[in-house]
Design a protein around this nucleic acid. Structure first.
Length: 389
RNA sequence: GGCGGAGUAGCUCAGUGGUAGAGCAGGGGACUCAUAAGCCCUUGGUCACAGGUUCAAAUCCUGUCUCCGCUACCA
């Protein structure tokens, strides 16, 4: 049953910003990304922009609109608000929450530091608000638009269908966290899903990805490294060498990782990191520390040096991986570093501590002595696939 | 209706003119430090379909089918 309503609303003059928005898109090709999303928004701008309502009348809830009909404040002398002015449309108020959270207008220093943001990351369903409405609103307040807005896609169910409760084809985040852990969910989601578009996912694809990457490759690499260093060297942390093949592999992996991060292609960033995991695992099988250890016991002095160098390189590889992967595996990173005898240098929220690129230099702490702990699996393998929720 | 994207190995995808690729899954092998993980080798595809251009097409052009995104209109 449709019911026609007539109500008094305030409008934002979006139409006045058409040309400036189009110019902004054209002059700043990176401001809205990926490209095809940018093109969609540009198309919307070019077909013409209409003013849109920013207040609601007669709402029984909501934040009071601050301006009265005559343009004066809608707040009465007793502090109450004139209900006739209406309430603020939530999407208009949302931007106000953003900027006041960043310090506007009472903390100009904080606001100068945090605004405009280097990067807004949003879902594709709210692209128009963040890339058209909000920039125009910000300009109308003499503020700057974000430097870059990245629009990510959705996780789709089998067959490319949108997940929905009514269809029953959704993956329950709580079940996923129970099975994979919070870090595991972060990993499989950001590795399995292309961050610039929609991707089909399934419970099985997550389990396969978790087992193959986190349990078998990464977790096992750390485990075998810590285990061998403890067994062969008594737990004293071996220093990395300066001329090994693992170092060379890292010098290739780090720029690839960094470039993908800066391009917001998080799945490619993780792929670059895990290519290095593979290199480290192959390094183990190539150098065969267990054979070196036997040679050491047989009195081979050269083998002793070699063994320390090989395990030192592997420990260093694990340190670098733990730190580089920390944004994706924030709970695991400190546990990994602890097994290597290193203190995790960042706060739980990721802030504080030294510049990450300094920490990600090969051999950054080569001269620091330390003691490894007993190995403890970071990502237990899921042998039996949990029942699909 | 307009604009745009996609259709390549069982799965997820890369590959924009020069003899089809990766990861995972599957199969085999040699090892043994390790979470029966890791390493090595390997099976597997008329590149949606039909035409065309070219010495040569997954790649360029035309048409068709299917799916998806943005947007509009009809009512």
């Amino acid at each position: 049953m449709l019911q026609w309503l007539t109500e008094k609303n305030w409008f934002f003059r979006l139409s006045a910003y058409r040309d400036r928005l189009e110019r902004w898109f054209l002059d700043n090709p990176d401001a809205v990304q990926p490209d095809y999303r940018r093109n969609e928004m540009l198309g919307f701008i070019r077909q013409g922009l209409e003013d849109f309502s920013i207040s609601r009348a007669g709402a029984t809830w909501g934040i009071p609109f601050p301006i009265g009909e005559g343009g004066q404040t809608a707040q009465r002398e007793d502090g109450s608000w004139d209900a006739e002015a209406g309430t603020i449309y939530v999407w208009y108020d949302a931007l106000i929450n953003y900027i006041t959270g960043a310090g506007f207008p009472d903390d100009p220093d904080a606001f100068a530091r945090w605004w405009p943001a280097d990067l807004h990351v949003i879902g594709k369903d709210i692209a128009r608000f963040h890339t058209i409405y909000w920039p125009a609103m910000l300009w109308s307040a003499s503020l700057e638009a974000p430097r870059k807005v990245w629009i990510h896609g959705w996780l789709l169910a089998a067959g490319g269908e949108r997940m929905s409760k009514s269809r029953g084809n959704f993956l329950d985040p709580h079940d996923a966290v129970t099975a994979f852990g919070a870090d595991g969910v972060r990993y499989v989601t950001l590795r399995e899903v292309a961050f610039d578009r929609d991707t089909e996912v399934s419970w099985d694809s997550f389990v396969r990805r978790y087992n193959a990457d986190l349990a078998n490759d990464f977790g096992n690499l750390v485990n075998r490294t810590v285990s061998m260093a403890g067994r062969y060297l008594g737990g004293e942390r071996p220093a990395p060498t300066d001329g090994g093949s693992l170092r060379v592999a890292w010098l290739h992996a780090l720029p690839a990782y960094r470039g993908a991060i800066e391009g917001c292609l998080l799945h490619e960033a993780l792929a670059a990191l895990f290519e290095f995991v593979g290199a480290a695992n192959r390094f183990v099988d190539l150098e065969k520390p267990w054979e070196l250890s036997k040679a050491v016991k047989a009195g081979d002095a050269d083998a002793a040096d070699r063994l320390r160098g090989v395990l030192g390189d592997l420990v260093e590889a694990c340190r670098l991986l733990g730190l580089a992967a920390a944004p994706f595996l924030p709970n695991t990173a400190p546990r990994l570093l602890a097994q290597l005898g290193y203190a995790y240098p960042y706060r739980p929220d990721g802030n504080g501590g030294p510049a990450i690129l300094d920490e990600l230099a090969w051999g950054a702490h080569a001269a620091v002595p330390g003691t490894l702990t007993a190995p403890e699996p970071l990502f237990p393998r899921l042998d039996v696939e949990p029942a699909e929720p």
